[in-house]
Amino acid sequence: MKVAVTSKGKEPGSEVDPRFGRCRYFAIIDTDTGGFEAVENEGALAAGGAGPQASQTLSRTGARGVISGSVGPKAFEALKAAGIEIITGGAGTVEEVVKKYMKGELKPVTSHSVDSHSGMGGRRG
């Protein structure tokens, strides 16, 4: 199964990006084969609706789960519609959180963890 991690870089050792909609990359990991791929989040700088756009990008990668720091309400709704499991509170490197996830140490959440525009660094558009 494929699982995505919001990432600041393109490597397995890159740090987890705590923002969902405005993360730099999605690290896509195939938990069966160990395959790794980094997909750029084109919506990172969107004026609005970065969360839903990122959810759509993610849905097209075939990922069945996503690990991030926090997820806003619109992204949560879109990810839920796409049937993608959401895990928040991810921190450390991509490799580390995937290991934790595979050991079953990270549990999916059932509601969004932050309000709209939380990833905008105080500039609330």
Partner: peptide, 9 residues
């Protein structure tokens, strides 16, 4: 342009 519509699957 405003990401008002999401189509997921």
């Amino acid at each position: 342009q405003y990401n008002a519509i999401s189509v997921v699957q």
